[in-house]
């Protein structure tokens, strides 16, 4: 059963009680929360995900999002993220509840997936060719990823490229795309059909809004993809489109600096990244418009 088929009263009861269990990119995630932003955000942005039976499924991440104390229910209300009863982060204002769920789940996946080299990157795929977009926050990788997804590319992730240490393929974990500040309206204007959750203001990252992932990407979450090109995007208003081929060594070092667990994996991470670069050339792309970026990406897509 998909979450969209769950009646809202039943969903609220589950979230407030024993928890709602969702399959998210192959991870079984149980969520417990009575916080309004979470109760409202989940059915809107996770409508196409499969609901699992808690009694019959092994839980990978058992997450609770609730006020840290009775006092904080009323006085400057806060929300706390708990994984297996442990709090990895400081509480945040209550209205940031859904964003905290997304950030917390990112943390869970990146810190518990050491059978993969986890690169901080967006990943999209078309015709069997995956593009990996590593980038620091603010580089525009999620915005470019969202625009490509709106044009029919399959979303693997807007946050992490999970490269299997065994197969070298990228594992999809399609989730809502996190956009910040002006990027939210840019994508709204770019595709009027894009669905967004509530925009949350005054977070540490400014205003944050999440875009619903396409149902087709979620349906294909078990299909791993082969990397084709690694593109380091950088958005610069009014800049001329600038494309630069990177040497394999430079690409290696830049990707390694954008990983979550390279230092944990040691030699295995080194080998996985080396194998990835054997089929993925690196390119830096500075762009001022989606049209410029799409033209470059389509040209790269057609390269052998």
């Amino acid at each position: 059963m998909k979450l969209s088929q769950r009646p809202v009263p039943s969903l609220e009861m589950e979230l407030a009680g024993s928890g709602l269990m969702l399959e998210v990119g192959g991870f079984n995630v149980r969520v417990k929360s009575s916080v309004e932003s979470v109760v409202r955000g989940l059915p809107r942005l996770y409508a196409d995900y499969t609901v699992l039976d808690s009694a019959e499924s092994i839980v990978d991440f058992d997450i609770s999002l609730n006020p840290p104390s009775q006092v904080r229910r009323w006085l400057r209300p806060q929300i706390q993220f708990l994984l297996d009863g442990f709090s990895p982060f400081k509480p945040l204002p209550r209205e940031q509840g859904f964003a905290l769920f997304e950030w917390g789940l990112n943390w869970c996946i990146a810190n518990h997936s050491h059978r993969y080299l986890v690169i901080h990157a967006a990943v999209v795929e078309r015709d069997g060719r995956a593009f990996i977009f590593p980038g620091a926050p603010g580089s525009g990788k999620s915005t470019l990823c969202a625009a490509l997804v709106c044009r029919g590319w399959r979303l693997l992730s807007d946050e992490m490229a999970m490269v299997s240490l065994e197969s070298g393929l990228v594992r999809p974990v399609p989730r809502p795309i996190s956009l910040k500040n002006e990027s939210i309206d840019i994508i709204r204007r770019f595709d009027a059909n894009a669905t967004f959750g509530d925009a949350v203001r005054d977070t540490a990252k400014g205003t944050v809004g999440h875009m619903k992932p396409p149902a087709a990407s979620i349906a294909r979450a078990a299909e791993h993809a082969r990397g084709h090109r690694i593109v380091f995007p950088r958005y610069r208003a009014d800049a001329a489109c600038d494309v630069r081929r990177l040497t394999a060594g430079e690409t290696f070092m830049r990707v390694a600096s954008n990983t979550f667990n390279y230092h944990v994996l040691g030699r295995a991470g080194f080998d996985a990244l080396g194998d990835l670069l054997a089929c993925c050339a690196g390119v830096s792309l500075e762009y001022a418009s989606f049209a410029d970026a799409f033209e470059v990406i389509e040209a790269l897509e057609n390269e052998l």
């Binding site: 040497t247 394999a248 290696f252 040691g266 030699r267 080194f270 080396g274 670069l277």
Partner: peptide
């Protein structure tokens, strides 16, 4: 060591650091 056409990177197993060679 991973040697590519133009350059290479070396993993130093004792320090866990990776070096980019000219």
């Amino acid at each position: 060591m991973r040697a590519f056409d133009e350059d290479a990177v070396v993993f130093d197993g004792r320090s866990g650091h990776t070096h980019h060679l000219s």
